[in-house]
C-alpha cells in the first residue's frame, strides 16, 4: 500500500457532510418507496431462510417465523434484503476508493483480538434480540422513525443511546 492511501485510511468525510447526504437519501427513500431505510430486516430474512431450509415444519409452527414464510416466494425476496446487498456493495466501493479493504480485527491495543471477537459476538446477539423486540434497529426504527417524527422512533433512539451511555463505563476497557 502506498503512502498516500495509507494516510487516507483514517480520513473520513466531514460528519456533517455525511449526515447531510444521509438526510437527502432518507428523503429520496421516502419519496420513492414511502418507507425508510433499514438493515436488521435483511438479517432476519436470512435467519428465517436458514431455519426454513433446515426444517420447514418448524418455521410453519413457530408463530414468529410463520409471519415471514410464504408459500410462493422465498423470505429473501424483500425490499430490505436487496437494500442490504446494495449496502454491502456501496461500502465496498467506498472502502476500496480509500484503501480500507483488508481482513483484520479492529480492536483497542489494550485488548486481544480474541476478547474483541467475543464481545462482538455478545453485542451482536443482544442487538439482534433487541432489534426484533423493538421492531427495528438504529436505521430502521430510530433514523427513519425520526424522519417522520414517529414517537416509537424517538423512544427507541433515546433508549439505545441512553442505555449505551449508562453501560459505557463497564465496557471502557474495550475501547479506550
Amino acid at each position: 500500500m502506498d503512502k498516500s492511501s495509507e494516510n487516507n485510511r483514517h480520513v473520513y468525510w466531514n460528519p456533517y457532510f455525511g449526515g447531510f447526504l444521509l438526510g437527502l437519501l432518507i428523503i429520496f427513500t421516502f419519496y420513492m418507496t414511502g418507507r425508510g431505510l433499514g438493515a436488521s430486516g435483511a438479517m432476519k430474512s436470512s435467519v428465517v431462510t436458514l431455519v426454513d431450509k433446515v426444517s420447514h415444519e418448524h418455521t410453519i409452527n413457530n408463530a414468529y417465523y410463520s409471519k415471514f414464510v410464504k408459500d410462493d416466494e422465498s423470505p429473501m425476496n424483500t425490499w430490505l434484503v436487496f437494500e442490504s446487498l446494495g449496502v454491502l456493495a456501496g461500502a465496498f466501493i467506498s472502502g476500496s476508493l480509500s484503501g480500507r479493504i483488508g481482513f483484520r480485527v479492529q480492536h483497542s491495543p489494550k485488548i486481544t483480538s480474541r476478547r474483541r471477537l467475543v464481545f462482538a459476538l455478545f453485542g451482536g446477539i443482544l442487538f439482534g434480540l433487541g432489534a426484533q423486540i423493538a421492531r427495528g434497529c438504529t436505521s430502521g426504527a430510530a433514523l427513519s422513525g425520526m424522519a417522520v417524527l414517529s414517537t416509537g422512533g424517538f423512544i427507541t433512539m433515546l433508549a439505545i443511546f441512553g442505555t449505551a451511555y449508562l453501560f459505557a463505563y463497564f465496557f471502557r476497557k474495550n475501547w479506550i
Binding site: G38, G41, A131, G136, C137, S139, A141
Partner: peptide
C-alpha cells in the same frame, strides 16, 4: 343494509427494519 368495513385502496407502504 350491511356494508362490510371498507378497505384502503392504495397499498400502504410496509416498513420495519
Amino acid at each position: 343494509v350491511v356494508v362490510p368495513v371498507m378497505k384502503k385502496k392504495k397499498r400502504k407502504p410496509e416498513g420495519g427494519c
